[in-house]
């Protein structure tokens, strides 16, 4: 889970990376300028700089800079940051939750065009969808649902039990779990799942 500290560190990292970028560019400009006066020295310095900005070298330097073992550093990029970034690039935010296109598609499957329009309007009114773009502009998305074979469409999307099973919207407050109850259940599950003697 990202904390404020982690976000601060990330922002700091981006800022530092930008500073390094500017510094390297300035250095490159300096060498070019130096080349007018002492070509041999400039060429040597340029070779060193090219070695430094080699991707593999950069990766090692970044791992050292962020004080992480290289394997862990690369692992974090591929297992955590990249999928999350891809998910955000390849999706839509609804109510603050980022949906990938496949998740969003699953969400709207089974809804009629009218239901989908109503949903979009309701989300807009609640401020849960970004402003801009009329419903008509995204209504085409539902064509995929309309084109589903009848049998598929009958079972697509919201299952029958969504209508039969009570949603929690009408729940009485005493039905609801409280954070302390959730924590207590969590502790019980932990105790039950930890090996005896621990």
């Amino acid at each position: 889970m990202e904390t404020a500290n982690q976000r601060h560190t990330q922002r700091q990292g981006i800022w530092h990376a930008a500073c390094w970028g500017v510094a390297l560019t300035a250095l490159l400009g300096g060498f070019t300028l130096l080349g007018h006066y002492n070509e041999s020295l400039a060429r040597h310095l340029l070779e060193i700089l090219k070695l430094l900005i080699d991707p593999a070298t950069l990766l090692i330097l970044a791992a050292i800079y962020f004080r992480k073992p290289l394997a862990a550093f690369v692992g974090t990029i591929f297992s955590d940051h990249l999928p999350r970034l891809m998910n955000r690039l390849d999706g839509i935010s609804i109510g603050g939750v980022n949906f990938s296109f496949s998740q969003a598609r699953e969400l709207i499957q089974g809804t009629t065009e009218e239901e989908f329009r109503q949903l979009v309007s309701a989300l807009r009114e609640q401020g849960q969808l970004p402003a801009g773009g009329e419903v008509d502009e995204i209504a085409d998305d539902t064509a995929a649902t309309r084109d589903l074979p009848a049998a598929r469409r009958a079972t697509a999307g919201v299952p029958d039990d969504a209508e039969e099973e009570a949603e929690d919207e009408a729940a009485l407050p005493e039905d609801e779990l409280k954070p302390e109850e959730v924590s207590a259940i969590l502790a019980q599950i932990r105790a039950a799942s930890s090996p005896p003697g621990n």
Partner: peptide, 15 residues
């Protein structure tokens, strides 16, 4: 993302 949770739309047009 882990496919443990899925979404739907309620009768009151909530996610």
């Amino acid at each position: 993302r882990r496919n443990v949770v899925r979404t739907s739309i309620s009768r009151n047009k909530n996610i």
